[in-house]
Measured scan of single mutants.
Amino acid sequence: YETDHQDYCEVCQQGGEIILCDTCPRAYHLVCLDPELEKAPEGKWSCPHCEKE
């Protein structure tokens, strides 16, 4: 399936195990989030940028 999400972390610009925001195209490593997450959230997730909106 096709997605318009970026394939690198918004914070460190590296690829790998990233989680995708359900609201925007941004993607993040769990450890690059502040506060960092230990595991990917279940269900819908909005990144810090979208949470501020």
Rank of each mutant, 00 (worst) to 15 (best):
Y1A: 15
E2A: 09
E2F: 11
E2D: 04
T3H: 03
T3Y: 14
D4N: 13
H5G: 14
H5N: 09
Q6D: 06
D7P: 09
D7L: 02
D7K: 04
D7E: 04
Y8A: 13
Y8G: 12
Y8V: 12
Y8N: 14
C9G: 02
E10M: 09
E10R: 11
E10W: 14
V11R: 14
V11L: 14
C12A: 01
C12Q: 01
C12M: 02
Q13S: 13
Q13A: 09
Q13V: 12
Q14S: 10
G15T: 10
G15L: 05
G16T: 15
G16W: 10
E17A: 07
E17T: 07
I19S: 08
I19C: 07
I19E: 09
L20W: 03
L20T: 14
C21W: 00
D22M: 06
D22Q: 05
T23L: 09
T23M: 13
C24A: 01
C24V: 00
C24T: 02
C24F: 02
P25W: 08
R26C: 10
R26H: 15
A27V: 05
A27D: 04
Y28I: 04
Y28G: 07
H29C: 12
H29Y: 01
H29T: 00
H29G: 01
H29L: 00
H29Q: 00
L30A: 12
L30R: 12
L30I: 01
V31E: 14
V31H: 11
V31P: 13
V31T: 10
C32D: 01
C32I: 01
C32N: 02
L33N: 04
L33R: 04
D34A: 12
P35Q: 09
P35I: 05
P35F: 00
E36M: 12
E36Q: 11
L37M: 07
L37Q: 06
L37I: 08
L37D: 09
L37K: 09
K39S: 05
K39W: 05
A40K: 05
A40V: 10
A40C: 03
P41G: 07
P41R: 08
E42L: 09
E42S: 05
E42H: 09
E42K: 02
G43L: 08
G43I: 06
G43D: 11
G43P: 11
K44I: 04
K44F: 04
W45S: 09
W45M: 13
W45F: 09
S46N: 09
S46C: 12
C47L: 01
C47Q: 00
P48L: 11
P48W: 10
C50N: 02
C50Q: 03
C50W: 01
C50K: 03
E51P: 03
E51G: 08
K52W: 08
K52C: 03
K52N: 03
K52Q: 02
E53G: 12
